[in-house]
Design a protein around this nucleic acid. Structure first.
Length: 575
RNA sequence: GCGCCAGUAGCUCAGUGGAUUAGAGCGUCGCCCUGCGGAGGCGAAGGUCGCAGGUUCGAGUCCUGCCUGGCGCGCCA
């Protein structure tokens, strides 16, 4: 990465300045390289001399002049093909400018990297898991789950680009009371349907409090009937429910899977909570934790003594006095499975902010299992407010009448949905304006970016039609040709594209890929300026320059489609 | 009451490894089409970065207190 290389250069220069006696032999803070806001300040800049001055003052009590320190560092920076100039500026900043020839050649490197452009090796093959969505399998996804899906998926993409070995997982809560309630609700619905259509026996099934009652249940009931006819209506209720458990689970999980697939989100594994009970892992771990004194019996229930761990104020029930385990019991087994059995180095769980209360106790689980809590990160995201025609779209949760992910995707399209739900940092709320998302106008940022890509494709197509050879098969003189790219707009575009690695690193470092949406816009904007200033296919443009510019826009297409794919969006050839 | 998060331009939001003059998009007001997709480009106006202290040579960024809004504090998930 460019910034790392600059950091290396400065670090080495500091070391040689120290050994030649121009800098004192004290412990200096690590060299930081930043990107200045002002173009005048170069492409990269280091404030090291300012930090060094205060370090010297602290160590020796002597005042040091940061400008002089900077000068002795600059004096020790050797020539480098990547660096065009090194300047000393202001109170002691060291500003770097990239070499023009090096920038020009990097166009070829971008084309060469293709779909992998910007990949870095930060992860070094570490095994990470991103667990996201994990909505209760009791109905279609609430639109809010769309943000979870987009965030988790983009995060997984960006982690892969940064060299991590990533597994994407959906945890299916099919072991608890909610799925039970769902099955009973579905059973009641199914009985009504069979009674009506098949004249099946009338059964008075008790519908429990809080039963699910959304309209989708009727659709599911129809699916059940298509599969097994009215057979279940003739069984004893207990038997029927047992049979319906698997069928109902399969129907709802398939529904959720299809919804997510419609927005381009897929998983490597759908992990069943129930399987943790079936194989006895939950019981085993509860027993072990009891033996270790982490779980005790009190007031008829079994409690995990979370309060002895930092950040936890209360203990947590793992088995109710009724004998039914809570979700917390399976959470213990689930995380044991993730870290001990499957040996993930790190796990990120993506949760909506209303689950924030559970975060501390996850840390307690990790400690109780003798695992480093740092290996588990809970990524919380804020809620989504849907706006349509300037009005908030109100939901009635009581009747199960809410907008689903599927409906939002159908209304605005998967790309607009993904982009919009990715634009803010996770901890900020989102006002998702659906009316805006469908507008084919420039105030819609999604269209702006995709339009840029389509424009590039159109240009390349025109070039091919007018007899230019395909620039993707790099001509032999390519490295000479790109030296013709000297227009400020051309160089600005190259610089912008070269930010890709840093953007990927940033998204990974903060575990929040929203910066990609801004980068995509900047990239598109920089291309548009080039497009406005520099003709490609025009009789006035000499052949060699036209060829150079075709290589440049091919690189731009590579970069733009890369960032779109990291966000999980399509890169349309035409619109 | 306690905890977490947010408060930056008219609107929606970036920026939170402290650093040279605080950004973008939209909106508003001006420009630019006998040129590759005008779904574009250029420019202007617009901000005491919630308030008050503190640390620092330097704070939107770190610390403390307060105000406002959202969320969370069950043998629910």
């Amino acid at each position: 990465m460019i910034r790392d290389q600059i950091r290396q250069i400065v670090t080495k220069a500091v070391a040689s300045a120290q050994s030649s006696g121009n800098l004192p032999q004290i412990e200096f803070p690590p060299v930081e390289i930043e990107r200045p806001n002002q173009p005048d300040h170069g492409d990269y800049s280091s404030n090291f001399a300012l930090l060094a001055a205060s370090a010297i003052k602290k160590a020796s009590g002597r005042k040091a002049n940061p400008r002089q320190l900077a000068q002795s560092i600059v004096d020790n920076i050797p020539a480098d093909e990547m660096v065009g100039s090194v300047e000393l500026a202001g109170p002691g900043f060291i500003n770097f400018r990239l070499n023009q020839g090096w920038l020009q050649q990097s166009v070829l490197s971008i084309i060469d990297q293709g779909a992998c452009f910007g990949a870095i090796d930060r992860g070094k093959g570490q095994r990470w898991q991103v667990e996201y969505v994990s909505a209760n399998p009791t109905g279609p996804l609430h639109y809010g789950g769309g943000r979870n899906a987009v965030l988790g998926d983009a995060l997984a993409n960006v982690l892969e680009a940064a060299g991590y070995d990533v597994q994407r997982e959906f945890y299916v809560n099919d072991g608890g009371s909610q799925i039970q309630l769902f099955i009973e609700s579905l059973y009641a619905c199914y009985l009504q349907l069979c009674e009506k259509l098949d004249g099946a026996p009338v059964r008075n099934v008790e519908i429990p409090d809080g039963a699910y009652q959304g309209a989708y249940l009727h659709d599911y009931a129809r699916l059940v009937r298509e599969q097994v006819g009215d057979r279940l209506a003739h069984l004893e209720p207990a038997e029927a429910r047992e049979a319906l458990r698997d069928i109902g689970r399969e129907i709802v999980v398939t529904d959720i899977r299809d919804e997510l697939a419609a927005m381009g989100v897929t998983f490597d594994r759908w992990f069943s909570e129930k399987s943790l009970y079936d194989e006895g892992l939950v019981d085993r771990l509860l027993k072990e934790l009891s033996e270790k004194g982490e779980v005790i019996k009190r007031d008829g229930a079994h409690w995990f003594l979370a309060s002895k761990y930092p950040g936890n104020e209360k203990d947590e029930v793992v088995v109710r006095s009724s004998g039914a385990p809570t979700y917390f019991a399976s959470d213990i087994a689930y995380h044991y499975d993730k870290f001990v059995r499957r040996r993930f180095d790190r796990v990120v769980n993506v949760w909506a902010v209303d689950h924030q209360g559970h975060v501390p106790r996850m840390g307690a689980i990790m400690r109780a299992l003798d695992l480093d809590p740092e290996r588990l990160t809970i990524l919380l995201y804020n809620l989504v407010k849907l706006i349509r025609e300037g009005q908030e779209v109100k939901m009635s949760k009581r009747s199960g009448d809410f907008l689903t992910v599927r409906e939002v995707v159908e209304e605005v399209g998967p790309d607009a949905m993904r982009f919009m739900l990715l634009t803010t940092s996770p901890e900020s709320g989102i006002e998702f304006d659906m009316s805006l998302a469908v507008q084919r106008k420039n105030e819609n940022r999604v269209f702006y970016v995709q339009y840029g890509h389509a424009r590039i494709c159109s240009l390349l197509q025109r070039a091919a039609d007018s007899g230019h050879r395909n620039p993707e098969a790099l001509p032999e003189d390519a490295s000479e040709v790109v030296n013709l790219l000297t227009d400020p707009a051309e160089l600005a575009l190259i610089r912008r594209m070269l930010e890709m690695e840093e953007q990927i690193e940033l998204a990974v470092e903060r575990l929040s890929p929203h910066n990609l949406t801004y980068y995509a816009e900047d990239l598109t904007k920089t291309f548009s300026v080039f497009y406005e200033n520099c003709q490609v296919l025009h009789s006035d443009v000499p052949q060699p320059l036209a060829r150079a510019r075709l290589l440049l826009i091919l690189a731009a297409r590579t970069a733009l489609s890369r960032v779109l794919s990291l966000m999980g969006m399509s890169a349309p050839q035409e619109m």
